[in-house]
């Protein structure tokens, strides 16, 4: 065993170089002033205090609200899709899962531009509405557009883990439930859904994480004024140049996500123990 652990050393160095050091730098930036000036370091907590200002707090609440809406829609659509797919033959399932993942092969930017050409005022949908004699419906630069963009982008991250956990369910458990008098509805809620919870949790965590940290989709579909946490961080680093404030926001976001994940994992554990 010993000489096998040696083989891991290059990866440890690699992980330290690209994960640990940048993370430590972000921590350092978040509690200092003066940006890249690492010679005259001055420690401060002002960066965190700044987040508490109403204008930035509202960005946080808006991001979380959108994240939750996106996750809920992804969960409803994704679970249904994963469940339907799991009923097909194994061969057909492979093809269907491939179809679900195909959009991920295309760059997010391109896919988002596709939504613009569909949703914009003289886009495909509104042109068709006009031809049918209806008025145009402004859709671009609204929550609606951003949510559509996020859901379509993140749906595979919900479908795949749920599908995986549905496939792992031993069919004799379903038969056992029916044998014991459970109709389809009860069998689903009391057995199938229970056994798919790990997949559901993974799907929720992934889609939530990705939806509150994204910045491309809200920027393109929500417009320049549309500010989510991801855009705020991007702005601090690219336009404003306040790396210290940007780092503080990033750190806070990471902390919030970590807490959310650990709460969910704990809830899952307690749930299984209680039953």
């Amino acid at each position: 065993m010993r000489h096998f652990t040696k083989l891991a050393r290059p990866y440890i160095i690699w992980a330290v170089a690209i994960i640990i050091i940048p993370l430590l730098l972000i921590v350092l930036y978040s509690v200092t002033t003066g940006g890249n000036d690492l010679v005259n370091i001055q420690f401060t907590l002002d960066n965190f205090k700044k987040i508490a200002e109403p204008i930035y707090l509202s960005v946080f609440t808006k991001s979380f609200r959108l994240g939750v809406i996106t996750v809920v829609i992804c969960l409803l659509l994704g679970y249904t899709l994963a469940y339907i797919i799991s009923k097909f033959s194994e061969k057909a399932q492979n093809i269907l899962i491939l179809l679900v993942t195909i959009p991920m092969w295309i760059n997010t930017l391109l896919r988002t531009y596709a939504w613009i050409s569909l949703l914009s005022d003289n886009g495909i949908i509104n042109t068709m509405l006009n031809k049918l004699g209806f008025d145009s419906v402004p859709m671009m630069y609204t929550d609606f557009a951003v949510i559509i963009g996020l859901v379509s982008d993140l749906l595979p991250f919900m479908v795949i883990p749920i599908h995986t956990s549905l496939c792992k369910i031993d069919n004799s458990l379903i038969e056992a439930a029916m044998d014991l008098g459970a109709d389809r509805f009860h069998t689903f809620w009391k057995v199938t859904f229970k056994l798919s919870i790990p997949g559901v949790l993974n799907g929720i965590i992934m889609t939530f994480l990705l939806s509150i940290s994204t910045f491309v989709i809200p920027k393109l579909l929500g417009g320049g004024q549309y500010m989510l946490i991801g855009n705020l961080i991007e702005n601090q680093f690219i336009s404003v140049g306040d790396w210290n404030f940007g780092s503080a926001i990033s750190l806070l976001l990471a902390a919030v996500i970590l807490i959310a994940i650990s709460l969910m994992k704990r809830a899952d554990r307690e749930d299984t123990e209680e039953e």
């Binding site: 031993d170 004799s172 038969e175 439930a177 044998d179 109709d183 069998t187 056994l195 039953e275």
Partner: peptide, 24 residues
């Protein structure tokens, strides 16, 4: 359907529900 029949089955690999204790 099976859930309306007055028979019960003991499965080959038991098929016990892993998320429930013995009583449940």
């Amino acid at each position: 359907p099976p859930y309306k029949r007055e028979v019960n089955t003991v499965f080959q690999k038991y098929a016990l529900f892993p998320f429930l204790n013995v009583y449940d």
